[in-house]
Design a protein around this nucleic acid. Structure first.
Lengths: 340, 340
DNA sequence: ATGAAAGCGCTAACAT
DNA sequence: ATGTTAGCGCTTTCAT
């Protein structure tokens, strides 16, 4: 409401009450140097007495920053929002900002109208920077933001030639490590359940799977690859299909722990023993793995560090707008938990 | 960034290019009436050519609204954030705002510092109104906001004398209905697993339980009430305790479906058949009940409608700041699914 | 160390 | 129907 809520004191009234000029009050509320201690206290008393709170619109307009950043979820399917993956990222980003005076704003973008609204909001100067989670390959939002000079950081990339600053986990490396582990267990017929292959993250995990087999000189049949969509149901269906057309399979890498859980179901339903007959590893989208089989060996993504890093990169770009875009790729970790 | 991103055109430049006055441009971008169609198009062409986007800070300052509302989660325990309950509310609030030009901002408040930051953000005029989810009884945030005249709507209430506009489910009524149903099944030794009793929602559900028994003239023993914290584990422990001290129990109302699921575990572990020996009903915090026993009969909360109603009340208060605070209590629905 | 003054880009009231 | 003008409340030189 601009509808000037009555009784909202202005900086000018504070100045008058404290018997100083506006500039001095401004310095005090911005912790600027060069104010005599006694004056500072007089001003602070006036502020307290009046219950003064700076008008943020005026402050932004006068040329300072918005002191806010946005964390955007571009996810047409709302179900995803509740996923532990996202709440973990949100939590760690929140933590990373907790000691700053930067307000974190989560926003949700599903439709193009919302996309447009967000761009106008950001370009309108209401946030100093934007972090994007779960960006799909064909999403133009990152470019729309970056092109107008708004500091922008992506979680994950849209392709191998991502042109916007991003933070990603080493998905290919994680997949390689997982497959190497399966090979180390003596498995030779290793299948993979991929994520949706229009997502770069899924491509990377598939690539890592293939590279590990290639490096070890182990065969990889096309029939051993099945595509899922990260959900448990898709994992179950994919695994059922694999069992049918490739009963020889003795190891599986799933691109998400939820799909891995579905795969376990399918395997057990088919009478296979896990991990004796078939060893399964899934990418873990949640550090605590609360929602999945507690015995499932996983490739853990450093979500906590991903959030921290996104914030760091964003704040740096906000300080130094000239700097070129950068990327950070964080190592994953294989967490052995006994089912493989 | 106030750091005046270069190449950000102003309304004035648009006016110059279009060969009109600033006022006319302002009218065009605000869809105000009284602009000749030809001028309007000329202005729109200039806007497109320059890539003009209104400076929101200036707009707010000049006395119009922020065109944004906040949806706040005050939840010290971050685990909660991923709960389907919250994602459902967020989704429905987002839906309710999708056709407006109001930007939805989710924010998270865990610490007092964050509380303070939010108040300054809101008082600073960056949002036109605030919706709060998961407010605990002792939380002063709603008052801090409402006192300064900011339109505020709560999801749930902090106590029986809530002084801020709120939307709530009919928790007592829902509990009464559930217990009446159990009585209808012939159960007479009906226990309840409550939520944390420092939360009003838990008190209401307990009250409903008692009222239903009282109205039916059926006995209610103190030993039949156990307190949980809405989690599955607490439900399991509470049920185990109930079984031990009151083996005669043949019906249970749990204040959340997650606790109900825990109770089912405990009952089965104790060798009780469900629902033959003991019938269980839980309050459902998620319309789809994906995360719990699909056979569990539940008291469903109209989350979709709660979100819609919060938005409606908020927008109304934003229009009509004088209006007194109000409240809406939405009916719950008993969903029979066979375990009771 | 502090006051005065010039905007920041927009809306809205007032002219025309 | 459209142009003109006076602020909105703050930050930031520039004086002093």
């Amino acid at each position: 409401m601009g509808r000037r809520r009555p009784g909202t004191p202005t900086l000018e009234e504070v100045a008058a009450l404290a018997g100083v000029g506006r500039g001095t009050v401004s310095r005090v509320i911005n912790d600027a140097a060069g104010v005599k201690e006694s004056t500072r206290r007089a001003v602070q008393r006036a502020i307290a007495e009046l219950g003064y709170v700076p008008n943020l619109a005026a402050r932004s307009l006068a040329g300072r920053r918005a002191d806010a950043v946005a964390l955007v979820m571009t996810e047409p399917d709302w179900r995803q929002f509740g996923e532990p993956f996202f709440s973990e990222v949100v939590r760690s980003v929140g933590d990373a900002l907790t000691d700053t005076k930067v307000q974190l704003l989560l926003t949700l973008v599903r439709t193009d109208a919302e996309r447009q609204r967000l761009v106008e909001y950001a370009r309108g100067g209401r946030v100093d920077g934007v972090m994007l989670m779960s960006v799909h390959a064909e999403d133009a939002l990152p470019d729309m933001l970056a092109e107008v000079g708004l500091p922008t950081v992506l979680l994950g990339r849209r392709s191998g030639e991502e042109s916007v600053t991003y933070v990603d986990a080493d998905n290919a490396g994680g997949a390689r490590g997982a497959v190497a582990h399966l090979l180390g267990l003596g498995r030779r017929s290793i299948a993979t359940i991929t994520g949706p292959l229009d997502m770069y993250v899924a491509q990377c995990r598939l690539r890592g799977y293939r590279e590990a087999l290639e490096r070890a000189g182990v065969e990889s049949r096309p029939a051993w690859t099945a595509e899922g969509d990260f959900s448990a149901g898709s994992g179950r269906r994919a695994m059922a299909g694999l069992i049918e057309r490739a009963p020889e399979i003795d190891g599986v890498l799933a691109a998400s722990d939820t799909m891995a859980a579905g795969a376990l179901d399918a395997l057990r339903a088919a009478g296979r023993r896990v991990p004796e007959d078939v060893a399964v590893i899934g990418f873990d989208d949640f550090p605590l793995a609360q929602h999945t089989d507690p015995k499932l060996t996983t490739v853990r993504q450093p979500l906590e560090e991903i959030g921290r890093t996104m914030v760091r990169l964003l704040l740096e770009e906000m300080e130094e707008p000239e700097v070129a875009w950068r990327h950070v790729i964080l190592r994953t970790e294989l967490v052995l938990r006994g089912s493989a």
